[in-house]
Design a protein around this nucleic acid. Structure first.
Length: 794
DNA sequence: CTCCTTTGTCTTTTT
DNA sequence: GACAAAGGAG
């Protein structure tokens, strides 16, 4: 009544979902159907209309970003919205475990191991067991362990499962030793966070009951991506009150490879009898041309819930499709299309280029640099996984005084202190003999045999950490001294005391600067965290370490940056853009070769869902493209048009009639890998038909200017070299470069292209235009403000 | 113990 | 083609 206004803007099914508050509810929300809106309104409705204390509501998401967004929107929508528990699965678990994990025999100050630490742990274990690291690769073993954990199988289970199979038994033994190692280090990996919480609930009726009553109303976002452990967690929590609302779209489940089980959403009604199902099928994002094409693709999956996604945003622009002769050309045309759009009044941030693999970003990146297009690569290298950041965090962890040996090992010889593996192994074996951590063992350095030569070095390190602990407001053994510390100052102290910057000397100046910038970023993050901490106590070092352990990416894009976005399809989930480029649509790349040849049709189906996710990111315009020839992992490959593109009826594409030839010419990939790397001449007719730039005939007007090397290009086996961009008409009218630190004839350095000689500087209206002949990349023209050229001595 | 060369490896990856 | 890790020489 008094709140009805708030809910009046919802459509009928959305209202249904918001108002159905009691009992299990499954919301099948198609792409762009407003699911976040439903979730936030539902929370508001529970609080305002049903008088549910915000304290009793739990909303779980997968990403921090989604959690932050939801938090913000709930706060805007309803009073006391900020006391609703909105968090990711993992941070929810951490918060629960910090209070109760002692019941499972762990200390509540456990550390969290990321993928890197896991690898290190596996490496140590394999070595410890005297196994051949080539036979038991760390990457494979990490996957094995993670898979086992997601299925909630213990080392014992795996050993039984192995039977008499030697290899399987050994793997189970590695798993077992890995578990013991983590336990010894009081560490949990990401999978453990979920697993241990489930275990805690299963073994402690009272603890479970406490949380069940605490979270009387539970909402789960992206439910299609839950794995077994996450399902179990939700099931345990919701079992008592049954007020569980999950939102998801089976067509957007793209994390099967990480253990997500699509059956969780498909069989939700089985797990929760009496479930009400609401379908949200009106799409508020895309025009029908885009939606129809996406529907045409996803229709080819079996075992999905039938949906009729529709939109009243009008037909819009037909989906574009181009198949280029090579990947360079594809990148060039994509960037050129963006440039044209921006000239026509659009912003760079209106565009996103999506691709299957991170490696593909490089071509677009180079092209952007070349054409002075500001760009941002989203989520390729996680900030907190960068070497220098991990080093400093390892120092922080060691200083903070956990028993995390992996961190100690990481930094004990960084910078070089002359402490090598042999020494370390001796300390480690002494430590394990006495049940101590590495740091603790160093206290008894005189008792350790056979390390005479390194003894002074080790004790110097020990005292260094002791000194840092003092500065961190800790006593030498790690207990708090009551003294307050500024995090940023502590990190600076670590850098100074250890002379950390000396480790950066090996890197090129450009890289060195980058690393220093990253470190500054970390310092300001730390400061920021401490100043804005909203817990019920002063922020401790452990609080900070925990925060960053669970954060994936700090350099999340902000809306006010006007940049072209480059990202993988996976990172694009949940986002939307006026114009989307779906690049690299080639059989063997997307869908990937592995998924095609695995023999499991579910693998290709997952990629198809990925395709669907990508296509439905577009609001107004969708460009699909691919390239016949591209180098992957150093070898040249010739690919056909992606099967996903062929699944779109020709009349839905702007030049779809051409697809027909593609369809008939396609060689059978499903049976084997024949013809995958090889090139079949049958295909040539297809390729020749597809050249040309996106929606433009004035090829060559900007930058590039080469035409498809039609036909003849396939006879040559020589590797393709990117064509030199045509230069703008030369004027030879050399202007004096006031405002620039370099002039014609000077040697300069560019972040991407290395060293070169300045050929020409043209004073444009807004910027200097510089032509440089690079030693390795040849002649390039660029705007001075973007190029950031540095003068070097020649 | 460290530095340099060689070898092998490569999807996606919210935490 | 790029990067990390292992192996060998100083």
């Amino acid at each position: 009544m008094m709140h009805s206004e708030k809910y009046a803007l919802l459509n009928e099914p959305q209202k249904e979902a918001v108002f159905h508050t009691e009992g299990p509810l499954l919301i099948l929300a198609g792409a762009g159907a407003g699911k976040t809106r439903v979730l936030t309104h539902r929370i508001a409705y529970l609080i305002e209309e049903k008088n549910v204390p915000p304290y009793n509501i739990l909303a779980i998401t997968f990403t921090n970003k989604a959690a932050d967004e939801m938090k913000e929107r709930v706060q805007k929508l309803v009073e006391f919205g900020d006391s609703v528990w909105v968090a990711t699965f993992h941070s929810t678990c951490v918060r629960i475990l910090r209070r109760f994990i002692d019941r499972l025999g762990y200390d509540t100050d456990f550390t969290i191991y990321d993928a890197d630490d896991q690898k290190t742990a596996v490496r140590h274990v394999v070595k410890e067991l005297n196994l051949d690291p080539k036979m038991y690769r760390e990457r494979a073993m990490v996957n094995y362990i993670s898979d086992a954990k997601t299925e909630m199988l213990s080392p014992k289970d795996k050993l039984e499962e192995a039977g008499s199979d030697y290899r399987a038994r050994t793997e189970a033994q590695i798993f077992d030793a890995y578990e013991k190692m983590l336990k010894k280090n009081n560490a949990l990996d990401f999978d453990d966070l979920l697993l241990k919480t489930v275990q805690l609930f299963e073994e402690n009726e009272q603890v479970l009951s406490y949380w069940q009553d605490r979270f009387r109303y539970i909402l789960v976002d992206e439910y299609q991506d839950t794995n077994e452990a996450q399902f179990k967690l939700v099931w345990l929590l919701a079992r008592k009150h049954q007020n569980l609302c999950v939102v998801g779209d089976d067509d957007q489940s793209i994390y099967r490879f990480r253990g997500a089980d699509i059956r969780n959403i498909l069989e939700f009604e089985k797990h929760f009898p009496g479930t009400k199902v609401v379908k949200l099928e009106q799409n508020y994002r895309s025009t029908t041309h885009i939606l129809d094409a996406a529907n045409a693709v996803i229709r080819h999956n079996r075992g999905r819930k039938e949906k009729h996604l529709w939109s009243d945003l009008g037909e819009g622009i037909p989906v574009h499709f181009r198949f280029y002769d090579n990947a360079y050309q594809e990148a060039e045309e994509v960037v050129r299309t963006v440039v044209k759009g921006v000239r026509g009044g659009a912003h760079y941030k209106d565009y996103a280029v999506l691709f299957r693999t991170n490696a593909q970003s490089r071509l677009f990146e180079e092209r952007c640099l070349l054409q002075n297009v500001p760009y941002q690569i989203v989520g390729s290298v996680n900030f907190y996984q960068r070497q220098e950041i991990k080093d400093l965090i390892a120092y922080l962890k060691t200083v903070a005084g956990g028993r995390d040996d992996i961190s100690t090992r990481r930094i004990i010889n960084v910078p070089r202190r002359g402490i090598g593996d042999t020494t370390l192994d001796k300390v480690a074996s002494y430590a394990s003999l006495k049940g101590l951590s590495l740091m603790e063992a160093l206290r008894y350095i005189d008792d350790i045999a056979g390390i005479e030569r390194a003894k002074t070095k080790l004790s110097a390190f020990y005292h260094l950490i002791g000194k840092l602990r003092e500065q961190a407001g800790l006593l030498p053994d790690g207990r708090p001294s009551g003294e307050e510390v500024e995090f940023d100052e502590l990190i600076r102290a670590i850098i100074d005391e250890t002379d950390y910057y000396s480790t950066l000397e090996d890197f090129e100046d450009e890289k060195k600067e980058q690393k220093k910038e990253n470190i500054e970023e970390l310092i300001s993050k730390a400061k920021d965290f401490q100043e804005n901490y909203d817990g019920d106590h002063e922020a401790t070092l452990s609080d900070f370490l925990e925060e960053i352990a669970l954060v994936a990416d700090v350099d999340a894009m902000s809306d006010d940056d006007d940049k072209l976005l480059l990202m993988t399809l996976h990172s694009s989930k949940g986002l939307e853009f006026p114009t989307v480029f779906l690049a690299g649509c080639e059989d063997g790349l997307f869908p990937s070769y592995q998924s095609i040849s695995s023999g499991d049709y579910m693998d290709v189906e997952e990629e198809r869902r990925l395709c669907y996710v990508g296509m439905t990111r577009a609001k107004k315009e969708l460009f699909i493209s691919g390239a016949r020839m591209r180098t992957v992992n150093g070898e040249t490959r010739y690919n056909d048009i992606s099967r996903f593109v062929l699944e779109i009826p020709g009349n839905m594409l702007d030049n779809g009639a051409l697809l027909k030839s593609g369809r008939t010419d396609r060689t059978g990939y499903d049976s084997d890998d024949r013809g995958y790397k090889g090139f079949s001449f049958k295909d040539r007719s297809v390729s020749d038909s597809y050249g040309g730039s996106f929606g433009s005939s004035e090829n060559g007007a900007y930058g590039g200017g080469y035409k498809s090397p039609s036909g003849s290009s396939y006879t040559a086996k020589k590797p393709f070299t990117p064509p030199k961009p045509a230069t703008f008409g030369r004027t030879f009218e050399v202007k004096k470069a006031d405002g620039l630190e370099y002039g014609v004839g000077d040697r300069v350095q560019h972040m991407k292209f290395g060293c070169g000689t300045v050929l020409e500087i043209v004073d444009g209206k807004k910027d200097f235009e510089v032509a440089v002949n690079f030693d390795e990349y040849g002649e390039k023209r660029m705007f001075a403000s973007f190029a950031k050229l540095k003068k070097i001595d020649s």
